Computed example of a mutant assay.
Amino acid sequence: MSRPPAHLMWADALALMSRAEQLRRGFFQPVAAGWEPPVDLLETEGALVIVVALPGVAANDVELVVGGGEIAIQGLRRLPPALRSARVHRMELPQGRFERRVALPPGTFELSRRELADGCLTIVLRKVA
């Protein structure tokens, strides 16, 4: 016995909504250190470029450690002081400590530049011969 098309469309819509919610939750993965920001890792001829989504994070609240074939990006996202006493109706951006460890491709790298702008931290690791 087949189900009417309306039931199939409803089941498909629910499945799509469930998948969209999974993707939204996966954007900021919770980890033991708090939360884990999403990262892009790109390679040019002379450098690795890492872009980390850190909305609302101050530059002096981010620490970088390069070594052992990886880079560790850690820090703190603070709720703005003016909002600390606000009543929360919905909060999807993670707060508190974060840490992200990214394995680097084979080679030797040194930190060349870091810049935090428009909610993204851009890290340039120069390839060392």
Rank of each mutant, 00 (worst) to 15 (best):
P5S: 06
P5G: 12
A6V: 13
H7V: 13
L8C: 11
M9N: 11
M9F: 11
M9L: 14
A13P: 07
A13W: 01
L14W: 02
L14H: 11
L14E: 10
L14M: 13
L16H: 14
S18W: 09
Q22D: 07
L23V: 13
L23Q: 05
L23W: 11
L23K: 13
R25M: 10
R25C: 00
G26N: 13
G26T: 07
G26Q: 13
F27M: 10
F27E: 12
F27V: 10
F28A: 08
Q29S: 10
V31R: 11
A32E: 12
A32H: 07
G34Q: 02
G34T: 03
G34H: 02
W35A: 09
W35P: 06
W35F: 08
P37N: 05
P38Q: 04
P38L: 03
L42H: 08
T44Q: 10
E45V: 08
G46C: 06
L48G: 01
V49P: 01
V49G: 00
I50E: 01
I50V: 09
V51W: 02
V52C: 09
V52H: 06
V52A: 03
A53D: 09
A53Y: 09
A53W: 09
L54S: 01
L54M: 03
P55Y: 09
G56Y: 08
G56S: 05
G56F: 08
G56E: 09
